[in-house]
Amino acid sequence: MAWVVGTGSFLGLLAVAWGLVTLRTGWVLPTARRHVTRPQLHGLGALLTGASVVLQGLFYFRVLPSVSWEARFFGGNALLLAGLLLIALSQLLPLRRSRDHTNPSGV
Rank of each mutant, 00 (worst) to 15 (best):
S90Q: 08
W18G: 01
T7M: 11
G83N: 09
G57F: 10
R24Q: 06
A51G: 00
G26L: 05
T102D: 14
R62N: 03
V67A: 15
W18P: 10
R96P: 09
M1E: 14
G6P: 04
G43P: 01
V16Y: 13
W69E: 06
S90T: 04
T22C: 13
Q40P: 02
T22L: 02
A71R: 14
V21Q: 03
S66E: 13
F59C: 10
T31G: 03
G106C: 10
T31M: 09
S98V: 05
G76Y: 12
F10L: 09
A15I: 00
G76I: 13
A78Y: 11
H42K: 00
H101L: 15
S98Y: 06
F61N: 07
G45A: 09
L79M: 14
P30M: 02
V54T: 04
W18Q: 02
A88I: 01
Q56N: 12
G57M: 13
T31L: 02
L81H: 12
M1K: 14
V21D: 15
A32W: 11
T7D: 14
T37R: 09
T7H: 02
I87A: 08
A51D: 05
A32Q: 03
H42S: 06
L23G: 02
F61R: 15
R96I: 00
T37V: 07
L29T: 00
R72M: 09
L44F: 04
S52R: 06
E70G: 11
R97K: 00
S52I: 00
L85Q: 12
V63N: 11
L58W: 12
G57Y: 07
L29N: 00
L55Q: 15
R33K: 15
L55S: 15
L86Y: 00
F61W: 12
L13P: 10
G76D: 06
G6C: 15
A15P: 01
F10V: 02
A15F: 00
T102I: 05
Q40K: 10
L23H: 04
E70C: 02
R97H: 07
L84Y: 01
V5E: 15
L86Q: 13
F10S: 03
G75I: 03
Q56P: 03
V16Q: 02
I87W: 05
A17V: 04
L11Y: 14
V16P: 02
A82Y: 07
R99Y: 03
P104K: 12
E70K: 15
L20Y: 14
M1D: 07
L48S: 05
L58Y: 14
A82E: 06
R99K: 05
N103F: 05
V4C: 02
L11N: 05
V107A: 12
R99I: 00
L93E: 13
L29G: 06
R34V: 01
L89E: 01
L48H: 04
A15L: 08
L64G: 10
V28M: 08
G6K: 14
T25R: 06
V16S: 11
V28F: 14
V16E: 04
L47V: 11
A71M: 09
A46V: 02
L14F: 01
F61L: 11
D100M: 11
G106S: 02
L29C: 04
M1I: 05
L13R: 03
R99S: 14
T31W: 10
L79N: 01
G75E: 03
T102H: 10
V16W: 11
S105H: 11
G8E: 13
L81M: 14
S98G: 01
R97F: 00
L92K: 01
H101Y: 15
V63H: 15
A17L: 06
V63S: 13
G50D: 08
